[in-house]
Design a protein around this nucleic acid. Structure first.
Length: 283
DNA sequence: AACCAGGGAAGAT
DNA sequence: ATCTTCCATGGT
């Protein structure tokens, strides 16, 4: 067991609420805990994070098999090392002022690992959240594995051997099935190292991932944000972002690309936070 | 019933 | 290069 102190504001209960939307996440709102499935040097490891502080003075207890790498990974995933004060300050002078005040202390929490982010993004493409979660849950429970009460996604070697028919039976579209199996094969064969992308620039990650069939700009932008924690992404193709802007500015229709290009200028270099808080504003 | 959903590939221009 | 159409399936 280990205790960690974090600089506020940091609204952990808001994070747990958000995590609990995904049926695969093991969240206990009453106990303020989440079980985090991690792959440390190729081995699955489960850490239990429990909130014991407040938004202004956040504190955590970590339980499970803990080593330095696990703590470091958790700190990065939960963004304990990114103080939000400067970022909030930046947005208080913009059109997003009210939204940031309303959701103050919302960090850009990452997905539990980059590979998981990519697969989840593919499954979620162009699907409503409800069905997307259903599909993801079926996929992981059928082909993944469980450890200490949490499901892990099937590793690339496993996913590469799934057949298109097996996925179609669980209501994947044929295309989506091909995308997932194809990407798993590329990774399993060693032609793509997602973890190595952490050392590359946003543009380099974009140019290497967009070559994959099934991966477009939206997916890479989401990967950069929620897989790697990059801070200046704005997925304009995202229907949620478009609806949030429509609501913010009381538009009759969804904003055009040109309008979004104009709005986003004031939000740099923290566009990922603009995106995140815009999403929160319509939930 | 019609339109939408936290897109992307393939075809057309 | 940029624009349009088609893809698939559940949700509302």
């Amino acid at each position: 067991m280990q205790t960690v102190n974090v600089k506020g504001p940091y609204n952990f209960d808001g994070i747990l609420d958000r995590l609990s939307i995904d049926p695969l996440n093991e969240v206990n709102l009453a106990e303020r805990t989440v079980r985090v499935p991690l792959i440390i040097e190729g081995e699955p490891n489960v850490a239990i994070v429990k909130g014991i502080g407040t938004t202004e003075n956040p504190k955590f207890i970590i339980e499970g098999s803990i080593d330095d790498q696990t703590i470091k990974r958790l700190a990065h995933i939960l963004q304990w090392d990114v103080p939000l004060t400067d970022i909030h300050q930046h947005f208080l002078t913009t059109d997003l002022k009210e939204i940031f005040e309303q959701h103050m202390g919302t960090p850009l929490v990452l997905d539990f690992d980059p590979y998981r982010t990519l697969i989840k993004c593919i499954i979620h493409q162009q699907l409503n959240m409800s069905f997307a979660h259903t599909l993801t849950e079926r996929f992981v429970k059928q082909f993944g594995f469980e450890k200490e009460g949490v499901f892990f996604y099937p590793p690339p070697e496993t996913a590469a051997n799934i057949t298109e028919e097996e996925l179609r039976e669980m209501q994947f579209s044929g295309r989506k099935a091909q995308y997932i199996i194809g990407i798993a094969k590329v990774i399993a064969e060693g032609q793509l190292d997602l973890d190595a992308l952490a050392e590359k620039s946003d543009d380099e990650v974009m140019s290497s991932l967009i070559k994959l069939r099934g991966v477009g700009p939206w997916t890479v932008q989401n990967f950069l944000m929620f897989g790697l924690g990059r801070k200046n992404l704005f997925p304009m193709a995202d229907i949620g972002i478009q609806n949030a802007i429509k609501k913010l500015y009381n538009l009759e229709r969804k904003p055009t690309i040109e309008e979004m290009e104009q709005y986003k200028k004031a939000w740099e270099p923290y566009l990922s936070y603009a995106s995140l808080y815009l999403w929160r504003s319509i939930e």
